[in-house]
Design a protein around this nucleic acid. Structure first.
Length: 248
DNA sequence: CCAGACGTTGTT
DNA sequence: GTCTGG
DNA sequence: CCAGACGTTGTT
DNA sequence: GTCTGG
């Protein structure tokens, strides 16, 4: 799945990489600090289409706040339980289905973290950092498939929130963890973001890739990332992994 | 009809 | 808001 | 996702 | 053990 990730890019870089050529000015966008330990409920960048169906860069809080939340407390409570949406059931779940039809987005990331569980050959809680194998050559971001929603607080505050779509892990990623984020390659972005396309079946088809783990690599990293108090580029420094640890 | 849930992951 | 369970 | 809390009363 | 906060 995906419960922690990294993003160090500036708005101007994201506008270029995500091909947002609709006149949005980077200087007018919120500047989020580089963050190698982004946690649920924090503010993240989204790529989505605006009401005129023009691609834009926006920000939102990570974790879906259901539109019917009555107060801030219940909104926050539900949000931290909806940081991911299963691709297998997203079209039916009450919390997600309308966003899946009408408010799809991309969530940019340098990379994300996965903690190896007992399913894999590693000790529990061994973190891995997964990113594009082209990061060093071109600072290539990952594009998570996501959905977003808008909640109006009782005080009238507009709060946008978003969830990352997950799927069963495949290939080498399955050796680390049983779930993985759903990625979308560049050639699918247009159709995915198109707000005139409100067909669940088509959206579901867009998430199906021949090689969902294509172009990715996973590296073991120190457990520094485990604590949300730690941050910085050192969190993604590769470490040597000894023999897989077993319980005696 | 009203009340209560509405989510994921991992672990058991 | 909308569906499910009682 | 992991880490850290997990409680009340009264007083400031 | 389970929930909350970040």
């Amino acid at each position: 799945m995906c419960g922690r990730f990294a993003l160090s890019k500036l708005p101007a870089e994201l506008l270029e990489e995500f091909e947002i050529h609709t006149g949005q000015s980077a200087s007018q966008l919120p500047l989020l600090p580089a963050d190698w330990n982004i946690t649920p409920t924090r503010t993240i960048y989204l790529v989505r289409n605006d009401s005129k169906n023009q691609r834009e860069l926006a920000t939102a809080s990570w974790g879906m706040i259901a539109g019917w939340s009555k107060d801030r407390e219940s909104a926050l409570k539900s949000q931290s339980q909806a940081i991911n949406a299963r691709s297998e059931s997203i079209a039916e779940k009450p919390t997600f289905r309308s966003a899946f039809r009408n408010r799809r987005c991309l969530i940019p990331a340098d990379g994300y973290y996965e903690w190896a569980t007992e399913l894999g050959p590693y000790s529990p809680k061994q973190p891995f950092y997964i990113s594009s194998e082209k990061w060093e050559s071109g600072r290539t971001s990952l594009a998570f498939a996501g959905i977003w929603d808008r909640w109006i607080s009782p005080e009238g505050e507009i709060v946008d929130s978003a969830a990352i779509i997950t799927r069963p892990a495949v290939g080498f990623l399955a050796t680390v963890h049983s779930r993985m984020p759903t990625f979308l390659p560049k050639e699918r972005w247009d159709a995915w973001l198109d707000r005139t396309n409100q067909d669940c079946d088509e959206a579901t088809a867009m998430m199906k890739l021949d090689m969902p783990d294509h172009g990715l690599r996973a590296i073991p990293v120190a457990s520094l990332v485990n604590s949300i108090r730690n941050n910085g580029p050192e969190l993604i420094t590769p470490i040597e992994l000894g023999e897989p640890q077993t319980l005696f």
